[in-house]
Amino acid sequence: MLNKYYPSREFKALLFDFDGTVADTMGVHLAAWNHGLSIYNLTLSREQHLAWAGRPTRMIVQMLNELHKVDIPVDEFLKAKEVNYFASVHEVKEIVSVVEIIKHYHGKIPMAIVTGSRHKPVETTLSHLGLTKYFDHLVCAEDYVHGKPAPDCFLRAAELLNVRPEDCLVFEDAALGIEAAKNAGMACLKVDDRHELMVVEF
């Protein structure tokens, strides 16, 4: 299937961003953000949410604090946002074009989720979608210090899978994630707004 995009390359690992790449979670996440922010009389626009996609939630709360000169307690907010997200997780659907690739290469090429989301929401959503078994590792926000566009998360996944970075193919929907893939020295396929795949030229 990947020969369509890279006819002359063979990859040894496939690394998938999660939100907006494997699972169509962005609407549910945005609603959870705004439910939590409402008590501070703040809102997060869809455009801002998409622009910050890929950053760990903790970092986004800190950025909101700086932007709006408020003091949202990070850990408390994270817990509340996750409760709101879990209440609507049944609304999340898989992104078919990407999941077809995941299922096709399962057992043939090792795969990992690499995300700015925390373990619990990712694990809960994978379970809801029946996709848990397809991934060898989950690299989530708790597993690295520097978020996308830093390459740390992708390099950590390559290390866990015992594969050289240049032998990894990344699937990403967000600009920050694509930049992180570039910084990690990895090839990248972008998942666009229509959930179609396109090669990213660096």
Rank of each mutant, 00 (worst) to 15 (best):
M59E: 15
V83A: 12
A13V: 05
G116I: 05
V28L: 01
G185T: 02
E100P: 03
Y105I: 07
L176H: 13
E142V: 07
M26V: 11
E94M: 09
Y6Q: 10
G107K: 12
V92D: 01
S117G: 15
R55V: 05
L155H: 07
R118I: 04
N34S: 06
V163F: 00
E82A: 02
L44T: 09
A13E: 04
F135V: 07
L160S: 01
L161H: 05
A174S: 15
Y134Q: 10
A13W: 03
A87T: 10
V74A: 07
S117D: 13
D24Y: 00
F86L: 15
T125C: 09
Y144Q: 10
L67Y: 11
T132C: 00
K190F: 00
H35A: 13
V22Q: 01
A150Q: 14
H137I: 01
G54D: 08
A51K: 15
H29F: 05
P110D: 03
T43W: 01
L42M: 11
I60F: 04
Y105M: 09
V99N: 13
L169R: 09
L126V: 10
V92L: 02
G27T: 13
K103Q: 14
A180L: 07
I72Q: 02
Q62M: 12
W33N: 09
Y105N: 11
L37Y: 03
V61N: 10
L15Q: 03
I72W: 02
E76D: 13
D143P: 06
H137G: 04
W33G: 09
K103F: 03
E172S: 05
P7F: 00
R194D: 12
E82R: 07
D17L: 05
A174V: 03
G20H: 08
S88K: 14
H146T: 05
T125M: 01
L176D: 10
T124M: 06
T57M: 03
V122D: 00
T25L: 05
K12F: 04
S88L: 03
G177Y: 11
L42W: 01
P110R: 02
E201K: 15
A175T: 11
T21N: 06
K69D: 14
V145L: 12
M63D: 14
A180K: 09
T43K: 13
K190C: 09
H128R: 08
T115S: 15
L189E: 02
P7S: 09
K148C: 01
L169D: 09
P165A: 03
V98G: 10
N34G: 08
P56S: 00
N183W: 12
A150C: 10
Y105F: 14
L64I: 14
P110C: 02
K93G: 09
V74T: 13
